[in-house]
Computed example of a mutant assay.
Amino acid sequence: MIMSLALAMALNMAAMKGDALDEARKGFNNCLIREHNESVKVKKSGSEFNELIQKACTAERQGYFDLLVKSERSYGSKQADAEKYANEEIQMMIDGTTSAFGENASNGGQLAEEK
Rank of each mutant, 00 (worst) to 15 (best):
2 I>Y: 13
3 M>W: 15
4 S>C: 05
4 S>A: 11
6 A>R: 08
8 A>C: 07
8 A>G: 11
9 M>L: 14
10 A>D: 12
11 L>G: 10
13 M>Q: 06
13 M>E: 01
14 A>Q: 11
19 D>L: 15
19 D>H: 15
20 A>T: 14
21 L>V: 14
23 E>I: 12
25 R>H: 02
25 R>Q: 08
27 G>Q: 02
27 G>T: 14
28 F>A: 00
29 N>E: 13
29 N>T: 13
29 N>I: 05
29 N>W: 07
30 N>T: 06
31 C>T: 06
31 C>Y: 03
32 L>Q: 01
33 I>H: 03
35 E>D: 04
36 H>A: 03
37 N>M: 07
38 E>V: 03
38 E>P: 01
39 S>P: 00
39 S>D: 01
41 K>A: 08
41 K>S: 03
43 K>A: 09
44 K>Y: 09
44 K>V: 10
46 G>S: 08
46 G>E: 05
47 S>N: 10
48 E>P: 06
49 F>T: 00
51 E>W: 09
53 I>K: 00
54 Q>F: 10
55 K>D: 01
55 K>M: 04
56 A>S: 13
58 T>N: 09
58 T>W: 04
59 A>H: 11
61 R>T: 02
62 Q>E: 11
64 Y>R: 06
65 F>H: 10
65 F>E: 03
66 D>P: 03
69 V>Q: 10
72 E>S: 12
72 E>W: 08
73 R>E: 10
78 K>H: 13
78 K>R: 14
79 Q>H: 04
80 A>C: 03
81 D>Q: 08
82 A>L: 04
82 A>I: 04
83 E>T: 09
83 E>D: 13
85 Y>H: 14
87 N>H: 11
87 N>F: 05
87 N>G: 04
88 E>T: 10
88 E>M: 01
88 E>H: 13
89 E>R: 13
89 E>C: 07
90 I>R: 00
90 I>K: 01
91 Q>F: 12
91 Q>R: 12
92 M>Q: 12
94 I>T: 10
94 I>V: 15
98 T>P: 03
100 A>R: 01
100 A>V: 04
101 F>S: 01
104 N>Y: 08
105 A>Y: 05
106 S>E: 13
106 S>M: 06
106 S>K: 07
107 N>T: 15
107 N>S: 05
108 G>D: 02
109 G>N: 03
111 L>Y: 00
111 L>S: 08
112 A>Q: 08
112 A>V: 10
112 A>I: 12
114 E>A: 09
114 E>Q: 10
115 K>I: 12
